[in-house]
C-alpha cells in the first residue's frame, strides 16, 4: 500500500504548516493577557475608589465613629509614651477643643492628639481618627499658632473624611494586589492602614485642608500667619527644588504660602 503523489504532498504540507498549534508567538500572547489583566485591575481600583468616596461622603457621623472605632487599636508602632511632650499635647488638646467649639466639627467632637517618634517633622491622621504629631515637629516648631495651623489642617482632613477615603483606596489597592498575586497573606486591612502611614491624600484634599485650617486660624487668632510660619520652616528645612513638588502628593510649600497670603 503506497501513498500516491497527491497524498504525499498533502502530508508534507501538513508537516511544514502545522495546524494543531497556533502561530502566535507566546510572548505576544503573554503581553495581551497581562495588558487585559492590568486594564481590569486598574478599572477595579478606580471603581472601588470612587464607590468608597461616595459611601464615605454619604455616611452619618455615627457610622463614621463606628468605622473609626474598628481601627482605634491600630495606632502607630512608634507612639511616644513618655511625659516629655505632655505640656505640648495638652496645649494641642485645648486648641482642638477650641476648634470643636467653633461648631466646625460634627457634634463638636474634638479629635484626640498623640505623639509619635520620628525625625521627620510631620503630623498625620490615623484611620481611627486620632491626630499624631511627630517629636521632630514638636521639637522644632514652638509657635502656638503654627502648631494650631497644623492641627487645624489635620482636623480639616478629618472633617472631609479624607482619612477614610485614603483607607478605602488602600483597601482597594490591597484587594487588587491579592487578585493579581493570588497571595492573601498580607491581608486586606493592613493595606488600609498602610495608605494612612504614607499620608496618601491628593493635592486637592491637601488644598481643602489648608483652606479649612486658614478659616479656623483666622477665626481663632485673626490671621493664618501661623501657617505661613510653619510652611516657611518646612521650606527652610527641606530645601527641595520647587519642581520636585510635582512628584509628591502635597502641593509645593511655596504655592501653599502664596495661597495663604493671597486670601
Amino acid at each position: 500500500m503506497k501513498n500516491d503523489a497527491d497524498f504525499r504532498a498533502r502530508q508534507l504540507e501538513l508537516i511544514e504548516n502545522n495546524v494543531n498549534a497556533g502561530k502566535e508567538p507566546p510572548w505576544r500572547e503573554a503581553l495581551k493577557v497581562t495588558a487585559g489583566f492590568a486594564a481590569i485591575l486598574a478599572a477595579l481600583y478606580i471603581i472601588i475608589g470612587i464607590a468608597v468616596g461616595i459611601y464615605v461622603n454619604a455616611i452619618s457621623f455615627k457610622t463614621q465613629k463606628k468605622i473609626e472605632s474598628l481601627f482605634a487599636a491600630a495606632n502607630p508602632s512608634a507612639e511616644f509614651k513618655g511625659k516629655e511632650y505632655a505640656q505640648a499635647v495638652s496645649a494641642l488638646r485645648e486648641i482642638s477643643a477650641q476648634i470643636a467649639a467653633q461648631n466646625r466639627l460634627p457634634e463638636n467632637y474634638a479629635p484626640d492628639i498623640g505623639v509619635v517618634y520620628s525625625r521627620a517633622a510631620n503630623a498625620f491622621l490615623t484611620p481611627g481618627g486620632k491626630i499624631y504629631f511627630t517629636t521632630a515637629l514638636l521639637d522644632n516648631v514652638k509657635n502656638k499658632e503654627a502648631l494650631a495651623f497644623v492641627l487645624a489642617h489635620e482636623i480639616g482632613h478629618y472633617v472631609n473624611r479624607d482619612h477614610l477615603k485614603a483607607m478605602g483606596r488602600g483597601l482597594a489597592l490591597s484587594v487588587v494586589k491579592i487578585l493579581f498575586s493570588g497571595d492573601s497573606s498580607t491581608g486586606v486591612v493592613s493595606g488600609g492602614t498602610d495608605a494612612i502611614a504614607r499620608n496618601s491624600y491628593s493635592r486637592g484634599q491637601e488644598r481643602e485642608a489648608d483652606a479649612y485650617a486658614q478659616k479656623v486660624c483666622t477665626a481663632l487668632y485673626g490671621s493664618a500667619d501661623g501657617g505661613i510660619e510653619f510652611f516657611e520652616y518646612m521650606e527652610a528645612k527641606d530645601k527641595l527644588p520647587e519642581f520636585i513638588s510635582y512628584l509628591s502628593t502635597h502641593p509645593s510649600t511655596r504655592s501653599r504660602i502664596q495661597k495663604l497670603r493671597n486670601n
Binding site: N18, N20, P26, E29
Partner: peptide, 8 residues
C-alpha cells in the same frame, strides 16, 4: 495558545 504546541 501556549499549551497547543506542547500538546502537539
Amino acid at each position: 495558545g501556549a499549551y497547543e504546541p506542547l500538546l502537539d
